[in-house]
């Protein structure tokens, strides 16, 4: 199967579950290199190429973004190092902490565990895409966080806010217990969980009143 053909297959077939398999199929070692960053001309570095980058178009925060992407590049790496969207944080590189949570077609995903090629033709939303692009107005989740003053070091905040954004869509009227489960894919090492939960409940309330 040549590279172009395999890319088409990737788009069609890749799920989070087949991520590791996919990385292997495209010729990289999943355990050591899948989460590393491969360079970009944007940084002024002459890119060292063995695998071939492909110029693809991504839909990120409502904008079409053209970007060169390697077959095994993760979405978090593309966003952070090629598109300048550093709001998506890397806390663990492999689906343990949730700091890189973002939305793909409205569904919360770990950006460290999705290949960029998987999201072609799909709408990617990051923390930078939550404000109203015209007015700068914060999303209801962000407003709730401002009101309740959650987060301490806040390295986990973008991931939690994206997870809350999905939660209030899926379950607009959650109990605290339901919210706790909905957000359990994200870690907060400062353990500011109580306030985060209060924000989630307030966000749902704000969303219902809109």
């Amino acid at each position: 199967m040549d590279q172009a053909e395999s890319m088409g297959v990737l788009e069609e077939k890749y799920t989070r579950r087949t991520f590791i398999k996919g990385v292997i199929a495209t010729g990289a070692t999943a355990s050591s290199a899948g989460h590393l960053f491969r360079g970009s001309p944007l940084l002024g570095a002459a890119t060292y190429q063995t695998a071939t980058e492909r110029l693809i178009t991504l839909n990120v925060n409502g904008q079409e973004r053209r970007v060169d992407v390697l077959p095994h590049e993760t979405l978090a790496m593309t966003l952070r190092y090629k598109l300048g969207l550093t709001g998506t944080k890397l806390g663990c590189d492999r689906a343990e902490c949730g700091a890189c949570t973002l939305l793909v077609d409205g569904v919360a995903q770990y950006g460290c565990s999705m290949l960029t090629h998987q999201v072609r033709g799909r709408a990617v939303t990051t923390i930078e895409g939550l404000e109203d692009p015209d007015t700068g107005e914060l999303s209801v989740v962000q407003q709730a966080v401002m009101e309740e003053g959650a987060f301490q070091c806040a390295f986990c905040a973008p991931g939690f806010i994206m997870a809350m954004t999905e939660m209030i869509e899926v379950n607009p009227n959650p109990t605290r217990e339901e919210a706790r489960h909905a957000l359990s894919g994200n870690l907060c090492r400062c353990a500011d969980y109580d306030k985060i939960l209060t924000c989630a409940m307030r966000a749902a309330e704000l969303a219902r009143s809109v």
């Binding site: 709001g87 923390i127 939550l130 806040a154």
Partner: peptide, 29 residues
């Protein structure tokens, strides 16, 4: 009294820059 910390807006909009968020021309790894 409770007051939202002055850096909270940056923290929740992705504007807050932690060490790994800085870039420099010609940066290598």
């Amino acid at each position: 009294t409770d007051i939202a910390p002055p850096d909270l807006h940056a923290k929740i909009t992705g504007r807050a820059k932690y060490a790994e968020d800085f870039r420099a021309p010609g940066m290598v790894f």
